[in-house]
């Protein structure tokens, strides 16, 4: 099969991944039969896993491995989570193919979870630590949106820093029904606990103000 990641991109990725310190695991959920972009997502993740020994890749079936899917609250296909070195789910999830601009939030999640976490200011860290109720952050994106990865990265960052928070990218075209349900007419659109909405790549403080208001 022809490679999805060309030589040029491969070189860039190898270089970035060179800074990885810890092992991570990509767990992808697909299903048999009709599944838009499942095959492509699987190919991308397996090619990415070949680029650095710190990355492992496992494929699961959302129906046959239903227990595991529910462990990570996976309800869509293709959907994948990134686990840390202890195999723990840290709330970092992608629904749909992470291509186009979204490759950036994907790389960022891999790097952060493999021991390259970026800093947040002490005030922000303190506010994040205080969140004690379950929070789900959905970030609807399109792959041609340059502002979207920033919003996804913030949702994931919040998730990594607090076990009550889960952050998920949702590719709006792949999950058309879900996008329609949440009236996605502009991206990035951020939906918190299926009720509160933010539009645009907002600063992390804006996420926090919404979460604190829950």
């Amino acid at each position: 099969m022809e490679k999805m990641i060309n030589k040029e991109v491969e070189k860039q990725l190898r270089q970035v991944f060179g800074a990885m310190k810890e092992d991570i695991t990509l767990v992808l959920f697909t299903q048999e039969g009709e599944c838009y972009s499942c095959a492509e997502t699987k190919q991308l993740l397996s090619e990415v896993a070949e680029l650095n020994p710190h990355i492992s890749f496992v494929e699961k079936d959302i129906h046959k491995d239903a227990d595991e899917a529910s462990k990570y609250n996976v309800e869509l296909t293709p959907s994948f989570v990134v686990l840390d070195k202890e195999g723990k789910y840290r709330g970092v999830k992608f629904n749909g193919f992470p291509g186009g601009h979204e490759i950036n939030s994907f790389i960022s999640a891999l790097m952060e979870l493999s021991g390259n976490a970026s800093d947040v200011s002490p005030e922000i860290a303190a506010r994040i630590a205080k969140i004690d109720k379950p929070v789900n952050i959905k970030v609807f994106v399109t792959l041609s949106c340059p502002h979207c990865p920033g919003a996804v990265e913030k949702a994931h960052k919040l998730a990594m820093l607090n076990k009550n928070i889960e952050g998920e990218m949702i590719e709006a075209q792949t999950f058309y029904d879900l996008s329609t349900k949440f009236n996605v007419s502009g991206v990035p659109k951020i939906v918190i606990n299926d009720t509160l909405e933010l539009i645009g790549n907002q600063p992390i403080e804006a996420f926090l103000s919404q979460i604190e208001a829950l």
Partner: peptide, 11 residues
């Protein structure tokens, strides 16, 4: 969809 617009912000 199969293009990857990697930003060199990771270096």
């Amino acid at each position: 969809m199969f293009n990857f617009s990697i930003q060199p912000t990771f270096t």
